Amino acid sequence: MTVIDFSAFIGRLATASGETILPFFRTSLSIDDKSKTREFDPVTEADRAAEAVMRRLIKANFPQHGIVGEEFGNEREDADYVWVLDPIDGTKSFIGGFPIWGTLIALLHKGAPVYGMMHQPFIGERFSGDNGSATYNGPSGERRLQVRRCASLSEATTYTTSPLLMNERDRAIFSRIEKGARLSRYGGDCYSYCMLAAGHVDLVVETELKPYDIAALIPIVTGAGGVVTTWEGKPAQGGGRILAAGDARVHEEALKLLNG
């Protein structure tokens, strides 16, 4: 099967997960803390229910495929096709009632992300990409996503979810980017990458990401003409310290600062 053959099914996963999540949003939720450290890492009934729904659909339609999920672990992760699921990326925003969270669905073929979708069911937006192209579908209609030109860091708008999520060393390194950028903003989680793909943001700099935090976003950003790597310039689907840019020139400048 080609990636195109999977796109309708990915839409079904997004719809099913969204229908599961929305009844929980902006309600009194039971919240658990998954963290084994001092950093608060919340999970809700909505996270677990949405991932369970997607897993059931995948197993019913593609039993030979693998699944990597945030809430229920990994199955058959050595399969040719593997689904990577984050039912609610931005759970802290979700429990605060802010709509800057989304469901991330990625399809990997032989370890490489070949299709990704970010679905925001409350607003009704979908961002999807297959590395060759990327599309927005929402209340304003459907359009192709395209990154914007940005020749240098001094012209760039950069985002990170929060520098407080970085260790002390990485925070100091990240400050080089902040000092050089025209504008630095915090927040966004998966939305930052989608806004980069849509041409509103120039750089996203993150650390400590898991595969399910980034795999779906790579085909969206690259499909819109952007670049996603680790801070070392390596493939990003394994997570870690991530640098996404709309323009290869500002990506190269940022890499030099991060490794300087």
Rank of each mutant, 00 (worst) to 15 (best):
V3S: 04
L13T: 08
T15S: 13
E19D: 15
T37S: 09
R38S: 15
D47H: 00
R48I: 12
A50P: 08
E51L: 08
V53I: 14
M54W: 01
L57H: 09
I58K: 06
F62T: 06
G66I: 08
I67R: 06
G69P: 08
G69S: 07
E71S: 00
R76Q: 11
E77W: 12
A79I: 07
D80A: 11
D86T: 07
I95N: 12
P99F: 01
G102D: 09
T103Y: 02
I105H: 07
A106F: 09
A106Y: 02
G111M: 02
G111V: 05
P113T: 08
Y136V: 01
G141A: 00
E142Q: 15
R143Y: 14
R149I: 04
E155M: 10
T158N: 00
M166K: 10
M166A: 12
N167K: 14
D170M: 06
I173L: 11
S175G: 02
L183S: 13
G187Y: 07
S192F: 07
Y193C: 06
L196Q: 01
A198C: 07
D202A: 03
D202F: 06
D213P: 13
D213H: 02
T222Y: 05
G225Q: 00
T229S: 02
W231V: 02
P235E: 08
A236V: 05
R241C: 03
D247H: 01
A248R: 10
E253V: 03
L258I: 10
